[in-house]
Simulated scan of single mutants.
Amino acid sequence: MKKIFLIAFFLVGAFVAQAQELKWHTDVKEAIAISNKENKPMLLFFTGSDWCGWCIRLQNEVLKTAEFSKWASQNVVLVELDYPRRTPQTPELKNQNNELQQAFGIQGFPTIYFTSAESKDGKVNFKGLGHTGYVAGGPTAWLAVAEGIVHPKKS
Rank of each mutant, 00 (worst) to 15 (best):
P88M: 09
F46G: 12
T115Y: 01
L129F: 03
E30D: 12
G130W: 06
G148A: 09
G48P: 00
M1I: 05
Q74K: 15
S35P: 08
T87W: 04
L58Y: 03
L63I: 02
R57W: 02
A33M: 06
V145R: 08
T47M: 15
G13V: 11
P84E: 03
E30K: 15
V77L: 07
G133F: 02
N39A: 15
I34A: 09
A31Q: 09
V145P: 07
G48Q: 03
F104H: 08
G105V: 02
A117N: 07
I7L: 15
T26I: 04
G108N: 13
G108I: 01
L6F: 11
V76Q: 00
I56F: 02
Q20W: 04
K3N: 09
F46Y: 13
K154P: 01
N36C: 04
R86E: 06
K29Q: 12
Y113D: 10
E21C: 06
R86N: 14
V145T: 14
N125I: 10
G130S: 09
K37E: 15
D82I: 05
F10V: 14
T115P: 02
K2L: 08
N75E: 05
E80K: 15
I32Q: 07
K37P: 07
D27I: 01
G108F: 07
K94R: 14
I32H: 06
W24C: 12
I112R: 00
L100K: 10
M42H: 12
W51H: 09
N98Q: 12
V12T: 12
Q102M: 05
W71D: 11
I112C: 14
I4R: 12
Y134W: 06
A66Q: 12
S49G: 13
P139S: 15
W71G: 14
W51F: 06
E30A: 14
H25F: 10
F109Q: 04
I149T: 05
V145H: 05
Q107S: 13
L6D: 07
F109T: 08
E38C: 02
Q59H: 13
Y134L: 08
L129E: 12
N97G: 06
F68S: 08
K94W: 02
F46D: 11
N98H: 03
V16R: 14
Q101W: 03
R57H: 08
Q20G: 04
H25N: 15
V28C: 03
Q59K: 15
G13P: 10
E99T: 03
T26Y: 01
E80F: 02
H25L: 05
P84Y: 13
L6N: 11
C52M: 05
F10T: 14
V76R: 01
H151N: 13
P84S: 10
T87L: 10
L100E: 05
F109N: 05
G148E: 12
E99F: 01
K123I: 06
G53Q: 13
D50E: 06
H131G: 01
Q107Y: 06
Q89F: 00
N125Y: 12
G138P: 13
V62P: 09
T87P: 04
Q74T: 05
K2W: 00
Q102D: 10
G130V: 06
V77Y: 00
G138H: 03
G53H: 12
A14R: 14
S35A: 15
G138R: 00
Q107K: 11
F15C: 15
G138V: 01
F126E: 03
A33T: 13
F114V: 10
T140A: 10
K37R: 14
